[in-house]
Design a protein around this nucleic acid. Structure first.
Length: 213
DNA sequence: ATGACGATTTACT
DNA sequence: GTAAATCGTCATA
């Protein structure tokens, strides 16, 4: 596959854990996108959120809701769940847990490492745009990497278009990670306050909207 | 068929 | 800080 000289691709076992654990373990790993023309884009995952499925009022699968849109959430761990929202943005999740357990991790921000010029083009930004403007939010990240619904339901353990590379064998130490409530789920009542968002402390590429960096 | 609503971003007051 | 942009999806009828 197109991975000479790179780190090993994350396989099924890496994703077959609960969403809170996967969200935590994805930090510091590399998300890679191969465009149709072969261009390789990549970035270090610096911000994630866990969505806990049937019990989680903020999740698309709350109450075990199953529709054409969220069908990917019921796929095997390592499946991409890409959805379109607000009439203009895409967001990408990685399904985890067990088969038929609709839980996933939303990828919220990357520190871009490969293909920054192309990312600027895809984002519609000028060549002098700062790197921190490229992937510092779930919608921005998808635009910068050319991720849309064509990738929905892709299996990241074998996909030629999108995968995760394990650039570190162990999770980041706790003192380098911050944990806060999720963004944009204020209407989820008691679930809005649960600390299910993680980001690399002090990293300038994370989205920022709440107090506490 | 209709209407309300987003797991957001950007531009403004 | 507030508001507009913009449209697919889903519940209701």
């Amino acid at each position: 596959m197109p991975e000479s000289g790179t780190s090993p691709r994350a396989g099924r076992a890496f994703f077959a854990v609960g969403p809170a654990l996967l969200a935590r373990r994805l930090l510091g790993q590399r998300l890679v996108r191969a465009l149709a023309d072969g261009t390789r884009l990549a970035g270090t995952i610096v911000e994630t959120e866990a969505y806990l499925g049937a019990e989680d009022r903020a999740a698309h699968t709350f109450g075990s809701r199953r529709t054409p849109r969220n069908e990917a959430m019921y796929g095997p761990p390592g499946t991409a769940y890409v959805y379109f929202t607000y009439g203009m943005h895409h967001c990408v999740n990685i399904v985890c847990g067990a088969v038929n357990e609709p839980v996933a991790v939303l990828l919220r921000a990357l520190e871009p490492t490969e293909g920054l010029e192309r990312m600027r083009t895809l984002r519609g930004l000028t060549p002098d745009a700062p790197a921190t403007a490229l992937c510092s939010g779930p919608g921005k990240l998808c635009a910068a990497l050319g991720i849309d619904r064509a990738l929905n339901e892709d299996d990241l353990t074998v996909s030629d278009g999108l995968w995760v590379e394990r650039v570190r064998a162990r999770a980041l130490p706790d003192d380098e990670v911050a944990n806060t409530p999720r963004i944009g789920v204020d209407s989820a009542q008691e679930w809005a306050a649960k600390p299910l968002r993680w980001y690399i402390r002090g990293n300038p590429h994370a989205s920022r909207r709440r107090k506490g960096d």
